[in-house]
Amino acid sequence: MVMFLTELSSNKKLLCEIVPVAEADYKRMTKKKYSFDWKAEKQYDVYKIKLIGLEDILGLISLQYYDKEYRIQIRLIALSAENLGKHKKMGRVAGNLIAFACLAALKRYESLAAVSLIPKTALIHHYVTEYGFESTGWQLFLYENKLHRLLKKYGYE
């Protein structure tokens, strides 16, 4: 399993990891740098993505488990301020976070695993083309081959 980000200035592949957010992290997970009030997500499963050996948090994801429905819902994702827009430093950050949600679902629900999110309408097209999400109307989901394709693309399979 080799997960990496792309440093856009050098095109270098840098190894990364996704780990649970620690209590002490919440102090530096400010709204200014990570857009949302992450303390409000404490009741859910919040993970951070970082380069191996470094402490800087490059992005965050909040997940909610729906065990009876064999799915994980992505509640929130936000990349750090320096990884937004045209001048972002790293590529593949959000993709790695979404693939991580797929991995968590597969570990838990095996062949029934699904990942869902409720999108802003204007962003649906991009989630579908970039990550392979399928739409049910209100929600987008990844299941079966689409879920596995994303796992493969981000180095999990």
Binding site: S35, F36, I61, I74, R75, L76, I77, A78, L79, N83, L84, G85, K86, K88, V93, A94, L117, I118, P119, K120, A122, L123, H125, H126, Y127, E130, T136, G137, W138, Q139
Partner: peptide, 22 residues
């Protein structure tokens, strides 16, 4: 839009009825 989708999943608040439907 592309940059936003590459960086965020925003919170979307649905009404109880909308959530049930979804």
């Amino acid at each position: 839009l592309e940059e936003l989708a590459e960086s965020f999943v925003f919170p979307v608040r649905l009404t109880k009825k909308q959530q049930q439907e979804a």
